[in-house]
Amino acid sequence: MVTFLLERTAPLSQDEAWRRLTEWPRHGEAVPLTRVTVVPPGPTAEGTLVVARSGIGPLGFDDPMEVTVWRPPAEGVSGLCRLEKRGRVVRGWAELEVHPGPGGRARVIWRETLRCPLVPERLLRVAARSVFGRALNRLLRGS
C-alpha cells in the first residue's frame, strides 16, 4: 500500500479550484493514456461513479471510483471530495480538499492511498507522486 500527499497553493478562488479539480474528464487529459467517464453524467454527488480507463486498447484496466463524500466549498468552509477506489486492479481511496489560502488564493490538498498488487510498492510510490503531481499542476493551470 502506498500513501502520498500533494499540496499546492493556486492563484484561484476556492470555487474555481474546486471546479477544475472535480471536472472529471479533465483528469483524463492530465494523466497519460487515460480516459475518464462519469456515471451518471451530470452534476457530481455522493454515489457518482468516476471511471478512469488507463492503457491502450485491450491492454488497459478500469479504475472505478465512487464519490462517497461530496462537500463543495462554501463561504468560509473548505471543500472535500472522497473517492473510494473499487477496481480489481487498483484499490484504495483519494481525497481532494480545497481550503482558503493566503491572499484569496486556494490551498489544495490531494491525499491518496493506492494498492496495486501488480506493481512493486517502491515503483508505485514514485510513479504515483510524479503522475498525480503533474496532473494536479495541469488541472489547476486550466490547460
Rank of each mutant, 00 (worst) to 15 (best):
V2T: 15
V2F: 04
F4I: 03
F4P: 00
L5F: 12
L6Y: 00
E7V: 12
E7G: 01
E7M: 10
T9G: 04
A10I: 02
A10N: 02
P11L: 04
P11C: 07
L12V: 01
S13M: 01
D15L: 04
A17Y: 01
A17M: 06
A17E: 01
W18Y: 03
R20S: 08
L21N: 02
E23N: 13
E23D: 15
W24Y: 14
W24S: 10
W24H: 10
P25M: 10
R26C: 03
H27E: 12
G28H: 12
G28Q: 11
P32D: 13
P32V: 12
L33C: 09
L33N: 13
R35C: 07
V36K: 10
T37I: 11
V38R: 08
V38Q: 14
V39T: 15
P40R: 12
P40N: 10
P40I: 09
P41F: 09
P41Y: 09
G42C: 09
G42R: 11
T48I: 10
V50S: 03
V50E: 02
V51H: 08
R53W: 07
R53E: 14
S54R: 14
S54P: 00
G55V: 11
G55D: 08
I56V: 15
G57Q: 05
G57T: 06
P58M: 05
G60W: 08
G60N: 07
F61V: 07
F61L: 10
D62S: 14
D63V: 11
D63F: 07
P64K: 08
P64W: 12
V67F: 01
V67H: 07
V67S: 05
T68P: 02
W70F: 15
R71G: 01
P72R: 03
P73L: 07
A74R: 14
E75H: 13
E75C: 03
G76I: 02
G76C: 04
V77M: 12
V77N: 00
G79I: 00
L80C: 06
R82T: 13
R82L: 12
L83H: 11
E84C: 02
K85W: 09
R86A: 06
R86Q: 14
G87L: 08
V90F: 12
R91M: 10
G92M: 05
W93Y: 15
W93M: 05
A94N: 04
A94K: 00
A94T: 15
E95I: 07
L96Q: 14
L96E: 06
E97M: 06
V98N: 05
P100T: 02
G101M: 05
P102H: 14
G103Y: 01
G103S: 07
G104Y: 00
G104N: 04
R105S: 14
A106V: 04
R107V: 02
R107H: 14
I109W: 08
I109P: 00
E112P: 02
R115T: 12
P117E: 00
P120N: 01
R122T: 13
L124R: 00
L124Y: 07
V126L: 15
A127R: 10
A128D: 02
A128W: 05
R129D: 01
R129V: 09
S130L: 11
V131A: 04
F132H: 15
G133I: 06
R134P: 00
A135F: 07
A135Y: 04
L136E: 00
N137R: 15
N137E: 15
R138K: 14
L139V: 07
L140T: 06
L140S: 09
R141T: 05
R141M: 08
R141Y: 00
R141I: 05
R141H: 10
S143E: 15
S143H: 12
